[in-house]
Computed example of a mutant assay.
Amino acid sequence: MKINHTPGLNGVNPYQKQLKKADAAKNASAAAGDKLEISNAAKEMQDSTRLLAERREKIALLKEQVAEGTYKPDAKATAKAMLNFYGQS
Rank of each mutant, 00 (worst) to 15 (best):
K63V: 04
E68K: 14
D47P: 00
S48V: 04
E68D: 15
E57G: 15
L83V: 04
S39V: 05
S29Q: 11
K80P: 00
E57C: 02
R50G: 10
G87S: 04
K20P: 00
G87E: 06
Y71K: 02
T70H: 03
N13L: 07
Y71P: 02
I59N: 11
S48H: 08
K76R: 08
L61N: 06
Q46R: 06
T49N: 01
Q46C: 00
S89K: 10
G33A: 06
P73V: 04
K2F: 10
T49S: 04
T49P: 00
G87P: 11
T49G: 00
A77S: 09
T78Q: 07
G33M: 03
E54Q: 14
Y86D: 09
G69H: 05
K72F: 03
K76P: 01
A53E: 15
E57T: 13
K80W: 04
K17Y: 08
S39E: 03
L9N: 06
K72W: 01
T6S: 15
M82P: 00
R55E: 11
E64S: 14
T49V: 13
D23R: 07
A77W: 02
L62W: 00
D34T: 11
A81L: 06
A60Q: 12
N84H: 02
E57M: 07
A31T: 11
K76D: 13
K26H: 12
K80L: 09
S39D: 03
L83E: 07
H5L: 09
H5G: 14
L36F: 04
S39C: 03
P14Q: 00
S39Y: 02
A28S: 11
Y15K: 09
N10L: 11
R55H: 09
K21T: 08
K35V: 07
G69R: 07
L19V: 05
Q88S: 10
A79R: 07
D23C: 03
K72E: 10
E37Q: 10
A79V: 04
K20Q: 12
G33K: 13
K43D: 00
G8A: 13
A79C: 01
P73Q: 06
K2D: 14
Y86V: 15
V66S: 05
Q88L: 14
L51F: 10
F85T: 10
D34R: 05
N40Q: 12
A60R: 14
G8R: 14
L61R: 07
A28L: 09
A60T: 14
G8V: 09
K43I: 09
L51C: 01
A53R: 03
A75K: 13
K17G: 08
A30Y: 01
I38H: 02
M45G: 02
K35R: 14
N4F: 11
T70I: 05
A53H: 06
V66C: 06
A28P: 03
L51A: 10
H5R: 14
Q88V: 13
P7E: 15
D47Y: 01
A32I: 11
N13Y: 09
R55W: 03
E68Q: 13
M1H: 04
N84S: 08
Q65S: 02
H5N: 15
A81P: 01
L36E: 07
L83G: 02
N27M: 09
A25Q: 12
I38L: 11
Q88N: 10
S48D: 11
K80F: 05
K72G: 00
N13W: 06
L36W: 01
I59D: 09
E64W: 05
T78N: 08
K2R: 12
